[in-house]
Computed example of a mutant assay.
Amino acid sequence: MAQLKPYRGGYYLWEYVPSLPAAIIFLILFVAATTFHFWKLHRTRAWFCLAFSLGGLFEVIGYIGRAAAHNATDSVIVYAIQNVFLLLGPTLFAATVYMTLGRIIRSVHAEKHSLVRINWLTKTFVMGDVVSFVVQGSASGLMATGDKAKLGSNIVVASLLIQVIMFGLFIVTSAVFEVRMRRSPPTEAFDQRINWISRVHTLYAVSALILIRSIFRVVEYAAGNDGYPLTHEWMLYVFDSVLMIICMIIWGIWYPGSLSRLIEPSQEIVTEEVAGIGLKGR
C-alpha cells in the first residue's frame, strides 16, 4: 500500500499521497485531447497552434509524473517533473490564444480597431507569456529542494501574477476589439468563413478558464505548504485539471486552423473574394 514518505530527514515533498485513479483518468483524457490536437495541427498546418498542442503534451507528462508519484512520494525527480510540466502546460495554451487574436484582426482587416497596435499585439502578450514561462520553469525546480522551497514558491507566485495581469489585459483588448467591430464593421466582418464573433467568443472562454486556473495557482502557492489548497488534492483537479481539459475540448471544437489560409499569402485575397460574393448576390 502506498505511503507518504519523507524526501530526507523530516522534510516531505507531498502533503498527501497522490491519487493514482485520478491521475490515470486525467492522463487518459489529456492523451486523447492532445492526440486530437496534433491531428488537427497536421491537417490544417496552422503552426501558430503548435504551442497549444505542446501544452497538451506537457499536461500528459505532468499526469504521468503524478501517477508515478503515488508510489514514490520521496522521489524529488518525480515531484519536480509533475510540478514543472503541470505549471507550464497552460502557459503554452496562452501563447496560442494570444497569437490567434492578431490573426482574427488581420483576417477582417480591422487593424484600426485593435487597442494595441497590431504589429505589437502578439509580441506584447507572447513576450509576457515567455517571461512567465521561463520564470515558472526555473522556480518550480527550486520548490523540490527543502532549503529553497519557499523562495521557489514565491517566485512562482510572482510569475503567475504576471500571467494573470497579462490575461486581464488581453481580455480587455479582445472586448474593446469586439465593441469597435460591432459599431463599425468592415466588409470582411460579414465573411462567414471567418466568423470572427464565434472566434472571439472562443478566446473569451479559453482565456477565462486559464485565468481562473492561474488565480487558483496564485492562491495555492501564496497559502504555503500548510494551506488548504496544497493539502487537499481535490482542489488541483477541480481548479486546474478539469478547467484545462475543458480548454482543450473548446479549442479542439472551434479550432482556428483556417485563419492562416484567410490572411495568407496576402490579405487582398480575402477582400476580393468577399467583394465577389457581394456582386454575385446582386
Rank of each mutant, 00 (worst) to 15 (best):
Y11D: 10
R8L: 13
V219A: 05
N71R: 08
E178Y: 11
P229D: 09
G89E: 06
K112L: 08
E59I: 00
M99D: 11
A149I: 04
E59Y: 03
L279D: 08
R8Q: 15
W254P: 01
S138R: 08
G62P: 00
V97R: 03
I165D: 09
I210W: 01
K40Q: 15
Q82L: 06
I165G: 01
A275C: 10
P18E: 04
G102V: 06
R66G: 00
L279A: 12
W251L: 08
F26P: 01
G278E: 14
T91S: 13
A51G: 09
T100F: 04
G224S: 09
H109D: 15
W251Q: 06
A22I: 07
T173D: 07
F85M: 08
A68K: 08
A22Q: 10
L86H: 02
M99H: 09
T173L: 08
V164R: 03
E188K: 03
I155H: 09
L27W: 00
E272N: 12
Y11S: 07
I25M: 11
R45S: 13
T35V: 08
M127N: 13
D129G: 15
T35P: 00
V84M: 15
Y79V: 04
Y63F: 03
L13V: 01
K112H: 14
K150Q: 13
I64T: 02
G146V: 03
E233H: 08
V60G: 01
R103I: 11
T122R: 14
V156Q: 05
T91M: 12
W14T: 01
A158M: 14
R106C: 01
L160V: 07
I171R: 06
T145N: 14
F58K: 02
E220I: 04
S241Q: 07
A2E: 12
P18C: 09
S266K: 08
P265M: 08
L209G: 03
G55M: 01
M248E: 11
G257W: 00
P186H: 07
R106G: 00
V134M: 12
S184V: 06
V172A: 13
P186F: 11
L262V: 04
E220R: 05
I118A: 01
I250Y: 09
M244K: 10
A275H: 13
V176A: 13
K280L: 15
A69M: 04
A72E: 07
T35C: 06
